[in-house]
Design a protein around this nucleic acid. Sequence first.
DNA 1: GGCAACATACCAACTAGTCTGTATGTTGAA
DNA 2: TTCAACATACAGACTAGTTGGTATGTTGCC
Lengths: 206, 206
Amino acid sequence: MSDTRRKLVDAGVKLMRARGYNATTVDLICADAGVTKGGFFHYFKSKEDIAHAAATHFFDEKTENYEAAAFRKLADPLDRVFGRLDFVKETMGGTHHVTKGCLIGVLAQELAFTNPEIRDMCNNFFTRMARDFTHELTEAKAAHAPDAKFDPKGIAQMYLAIVQGSLMLAKIAGNNDVLQENIEMFRDQLKIVFGLADKAADKSNN
Amino acid sequence: MSDTRRKLVDAGVKLMRARGYNATTVDLICADAGVTKGGFFHYFKSKEDIAHAAATHFFDEKTENYEAAAFRKLADPLDRVFGRLDFVKETMGGTHHVTKGCLIGVLAQELAFTNPEIRDMCNNFFTRMARDFTHELTEAKAAHAPDAKFDPKGIAQMYLAIVQGSLMLAKIAGNNDVLQENIEMFRDQLKIVFGLADKAADKSNN
DNA sequence: GGCAACATACCAACTAGTCTGTATGTTGAA
DNA sequence: TTCAACATACAGACTAGTTGGTATGTTGCC
C-alpha cells in the first residue's frame, strides 16, 4: 500500500486518539503526515473517511498484536484467559507510561449520537472484541468449570467495560494505576468464578 | 439565579452530553436556550466557561439525587452499598430507556489531552464519586467483614470504571442491557467479597 | 501521451468572540 | 418625590480566523 496513505492513517490515529474527531482537522493530519491537502483528498474522500480508516487500522493492528502474542499459543484455554490480562497490563502501559487511550472508545464517546456510521463501526469493533474473549472463556469453562453457571459472554462484556472505563480514568488521572489495579481485581474475580480461589475475600489486593 | 443563565446551562448540559464539547457551538447553545449571543457572553466569558458550569451543574445535580435517594437513609451501610446499585440501575435507565451518557465521561474522553482545566475538573469529579462510595464500603466492611482483606478504595475505583465503561458501551449499542448486566455482575462480586455468597461460581447470572 | 500521485490556490460556510446599542432597573442626593 | 448617574441584562450585527472540501495545476512513470 501507498506510503503516503499509511502516513496519513498513522497521523489520523495519533491525532484522533489524542484530540478526538472534531478537534482533529484535515490540515492537522496533513501537517503531521507531511502531506498536502491534495494528497489527503486523493486517498480519502472526506474526513469521516479517514476516521473509518484510522479506526479500522487501529483495530486491525491491535487484533494482530493479540493474535501474535505469546499467550495465544498456550495449550490450556484458561492460561490464555489469564495470559490476556498480563498482556493487556504490559501493552496498555507499565506504571511509568501513561496510556494514550483507545481510539475506538474516543470516537464512540464523541460520536455516538451524531454519527451513526462511526457509531456502528465502533459497536462492531467492540462486539468483535467481546466475542473473541467470549470464545476463550467458553473453552476455558468447558475445560475447567463445566458445571459453573457463569455466562462467558457476560464476563467478556464486563471485561470490555472495565478496560474501557479504566482507560478513560487512567487518561484523566494521568497514570495507569487504575487500569493495572482494576485488571488485577478482574483477575481475582475470574479466579473465583472458575473456582480457583480458596477464600474469596482474601484475594483482593492491598 | 437568573433564568436565562439556567436555560443556557441546561442547553449546555444537554448538547455537550449528546454532541461532546467541540461539536457543541455557542450558537447551538443560544438557539436551544432561546438566548442571543449577547446574552450568552453576558453570563459566560467563553465556551470553556460554560463547559465548566455545565459539568458542575451536572455533577451537583447527580450528587443531590444521590443524597436524597431512599437508599441513603438505610441504617445498615451494606444495605446502602447494594441500594446504590439498585438506584443506578433505575436512574440510568430501565431496559427501554437508552442512557444519554455521562457528561463528565464525555468531556473527559474528548479533552483529556487537550484541555488541562477541564481534565482536572473531570478528575476531581471522578475522585469525589469514588471517595463517596469508598466511605460507604469502608463502613460496610467495618460492620460486616472487618477481617476481609479487600480494599474499599480499589472496589470503588472498579465500580467507577464499570459504570463509565458500561455507559459508553450502552450508548454505542443503543440499549442499556450491558449496563444492567454489568451492575448485576458487580453486585455478585461484592457479595463474594463480603462473604455473602455460598458458592462463588454459582452467583453469576444466566 | 495518458494517468496516477501528488501540490497549490482557493472558496463558502462556519465559529468563537467583540462591539455598539438599548431597555429596564437601582441608588442616592436634593 | 424626583431625577441624574450608573448598573444589569440582554439584542444582534460584525470580524478575524478556521474548516472541510474543490478546482486546477504539475510531475514523473508506463
